[in-house]
Structure formats: C-alpha cells, structure tokens
Amino acid sequence: MPKYVMWGTYCQDVLEKRAPYRQAHLDGLAKQKESGVLVTIGPTTDVTKVFGIYEAEDEAIVRQLVEADPYWQNGIWTEYSVQEWIQAF
C-alpha cells in the first residue's frame, strides 16, 4: 500500500490555542493508528511544523483525514502538504 508524508504548519501560540481541541485530536489519531492508516505523527521540537506518515489507498484518504482533524478545522494547523513517499529502507 502506498505511503504518504504530510508536512503542516502550526498557528502562532499553538500551545495555548490547541487546548480545547487536544483530546479530540489525540483520540482521532489513536483511531487512525489502530486502523493502520497512521504510521506516525508529531510536531517539530519548536512546535512550528507537524510531520506525519500515512499508509493509505490514495492521497485523497490522507487529505480527508487531515481535514477532518480538529486541529485543521479549528485553525491549529494552518497549512499542509501531502506527498507520496517511497520507503527505500
């Protein structure tokens, strides 16, 4: 199954602004992980970017998951890109 890399950008003051949405965000990610579509996801150490790896039938599924996330819907993630990735090793 194809793998996809997602890079996104966080809003300013993310640590404060994400608080109301954090649990719903984490719960959704846990479900994605359990289903096998989410390989890994997390912020950069400076909490300006988010990086994720997904395994899905196609890019549209990954975009659907990102755009259904409370962080996207509430402006915590301000932009994102998805690219198919070839895992060489």
Rank of each mutant, 00 (worst) to 15 (best):
L15H: 09
A88V: 12
L65A: 00
Y10C: 07
E55G: 05
V47E: 13
W7Y: 12
V39P: 02
F51M: 09
M1Q: 08
V82E: 05
H25F: 00
T78F: 03
E55V: 05
I53M: 14
W77E: 03
T48K: 15
A19H: 13
Q12A: 14
I76A: 03
G8R: 06
S81G: 07
Q83V: 06
H25D: 04
V50A: 06
V39G: 04
A30S: 11
E16S: 12
T78Q: 02
G28I: 10
G75C: 06
G42D: 08
K31M: 01
I53E: 13
Q64D: 09
R22P: 00
G42W: 09
G52H: 11
A19F: 10
K33T: 00
I86Q: 15
Y4W: 08
Y10N: 11
V14P: 03
Q23V: 04
Q12F: 15
T48C: 07
A88E: 03
V62A: 01
T45Q: 09
T44F: 10
M6E: 11
E67Q: 13
A24D: 15
D46L: 00
I61L: 07
A30K: 15
I61K: 10
R63L: 02
G36H: 12
Y80V: 05
V50C: 05
A24K: 15
V37G: 09
P20M: 12
V37Q: 15
P43E: 06
K31T: 04
V66C: 04
K17Y: 04
R63K: 11
S35K: 12
Y54T: 01
T45A: 06
R18G: 03
T9R: 14
V66E: 08
A30Q: 15
K33F: 10
V50R: 08
Q32I: 00
T48R: 15
L26T: 07
V39A: 06
Q64C: 00
A88N: 06
E79P: 03
L29A: 04
I76K: 05
